[in-house]
Design a protein around this nucleic acid. Structure first.
Lengths: 349, 349
DNA sequence: CTGAAAGCGCTTACAG
DNA sequence: CTGAAAGCGCTTACAG
């Protein structure tokens, strides 16, 4: 009895599997990784032996030797934002089906936490980083990651350079603004997007350009990306204020509609509203939200693919993918509803 | 020149740091882990040497030798649910400040995906698991994890046994129901919670008990935990229907209020509404949502602490923590608003 | 504190 | 396909 290892307490190693299957250790290793260099029957015999012994592949050991961990580090700027939550789910699913596990950190918009987590990811030897940079992150972070030899892709938010997947923000708000102009609105303001990052500036730009192209003055109503704050802000607006709001995103649009309700006004009738993102709740809102759609899951898939390619070939030039947005016309813009005639002006003044 | 390693391409190891600092390898290893067995000046000298060489601790190597990875696997049943997103952020923050990294997987309520991710976590040698089991997960999963030697804690959702941190669901809905009874409602229905899991049954139970204790028939209006579905359901309710809805959670309550609006009725006036969770949006809703609060972040902290203790001492009995809920009375329950006199009945009929 | 050594469980490279 | 060997970068244990 003495000296016989208890299989219940001692985990099997590849050597044990090889012994059980009656093959060499290197053969067993190849079989467990489904190498095509082996005959099918050998592979099966080894895999059945592994099954019998309850063998569990030890990726930590493989990682130490080969340098590949099959772990990706993901940095989310604010996971309680529903759009980023959807995006996180998308990225996670795409990476998972490629055989990777993902280390997740919520930076909550803190560059300090972001850096700390990046260092922790490095210690854990992740194969790459997928990130939505916290507001205030300098582009030089990309150079540091380069020095560390860590492939990286930014997603949604990004910098002028570096691998990236995200929506075409400017086109999105331009579509929304043009739609409102077509409905006869002139007093259109942009609500939200107070943070200084690529998303805010892109969305503002698309709106502002559409306005000036129609000879109208753009107006920025800045507030944080927060339903409560948007609601408070909009509740103070009077009937002398804008007749339409191009909102930074859906959460801000939701807040705006609640603020109108609070002030006894009707979203979609008294003030037209458009959002951005088309999160799941947008279509079931009342009134259903007119919004700019770029499927979070598509961004996630694109980002994951770019990163995986980059890990495969780190010397290839950084790829950038900009996803075309579409305007989902529903009811909150007042399309199909009647606007008070007094406030409605002809398109060609 | 030949033979001199390029520090930019070759990462420093502990041996290099020891050489640079002029100490033994084991001393350097101790210093880098802040061992109190070393003199402060030795520790500093080593740490400065590490800094100069750009040394990065290789946790994969340490993991292989010591068996500890400082990685926790987290299984979220549905990360796009705002409550679970908040909880995820809470758990992540608590674990992060304890020096852990967290591998996250969104199971999207699929037991199959859940199992696959659990196996992947095991290969990655996580130190423990924190999970919200997908609906339909058998309690026997706990035994399997036990056999694997993987400490585990369930959070929010759980089983009759095993380490757990979660809200007192029954007390929560009881508080909400009693509040509505006190406001004079008799026709109170329970909306949502169609899934068969510990949370649904607990919340239904608290409501049902409070009803029967008042001699009233409990009524279940089942729908999925989804704003759109709740909205559709409630939009079909007529004035002959219930005067108050105890909603499974805040998302369902949000959906209910949008459904009422859609049907031209006023949430909080025509039908009283209560939620559960008190997610961030609840207080900025219109009307502000009366709801049962158990801070997601507190559950996250409790769950993390239980898991960490369990990792420290796996033989200790499984701890279970039930967090007491509080009722946040706001406006959606109609407190302070006038109910249509015809539908209001005295408390003591 | 030092120093020499073994070992965690893989992968890799190579001669046969 | 086999077999023997080296090595990834740590931790651990121990004699000094």
């Amino acid at each position: 009895m003495a000296g016989i290892p208890n299989p219940a307490t001692k985990r099997a190693r590849i050597a044990d599997v090889a012994l059980e299957a009656g093959v060499a250790r290197s053969t067993a290793a190849l079989a467990l990784r489904d190498s095509p260099r082996l005959r099918v029957e050998t592979r099966l015999a080894v895999q059945q032996a592994a099954e019998r012994l309850g063998y569990v592949y030890n990726r930590s050991a493989a990682r130490l030797r080969s340098g590949r961990s099959y772990v990706i580090g993901m940095l989310v700027c604010e996971i309680t934002n529903p759009f980023y939550a959807e995006l996180t789910a998308g990225v996670q699913a795409a990476l998972e089906s490629a055989g990777y596990a993902v280390l997740l950190a919520n930076t909550a918009e803190s560059p300090v936490r972001q850096r700390r987590m990046l260092e922790r990811f490095r210690e854990q030897s992740v194969d790459g980083i997928i990130m939505m940079p916290a507001t205030g992150t300098p582009a030089s972070l990309l150079d540091e990651l380069d020095e560390w030899g860590l492939p990286c892709v930014t997603v949604v938010r990004g910098f002028r350079r570096g691998a990236h997947a995200g929506p075409d923000n400017a086109t999105g708000t331009r579509l929304a603004t043009e739609h409102l102009l077509r409905l006869g609105h002139r007093d259109i303001a942009f609500l939200g997007g107070a943070a200084r990052n690529s998303v805010s500036s892109g969305r503002w730009e698309g709106y502002a350009r559409a306005m000036t192209a129609s000879g109208l003055m753009p107006l920025h109503l800045p507030c944080r990306t927060d339903m409560g704050e948007a609601s408070d802000f909009v509740a103070t607006l009077t009937s002398a204020g804008p007749t339409a709001l191009v909102c930074f995103n859906d959460s801000v649009a939701f807040g705006a509609s609640l603020g109108l309700l609070r002030a006894g006004r009707q979203p979609g009738r008294d003030v037209a509203l458009t959002g951005f993102d088309d999160i799941r709740e947008a279509s079931s809102w009342f009134p259903p939200l007119t919004t700019v759609r770029v499927a979070a899951v598509d961004i996630g898939i694109a980002g994951a693919r770019i990163l995986l390619d980059r890990i495969q070939d780190p010397s290839a030039p950084a790829r950038r993918e900009t996803l075309a947005p579409t305007l989902m016309v529903r009811a909150s813009c007042g399309a199909g509803l009647r606007l008070p005639a007094a406030r409605r002006k002809a398109r060609t003044t």
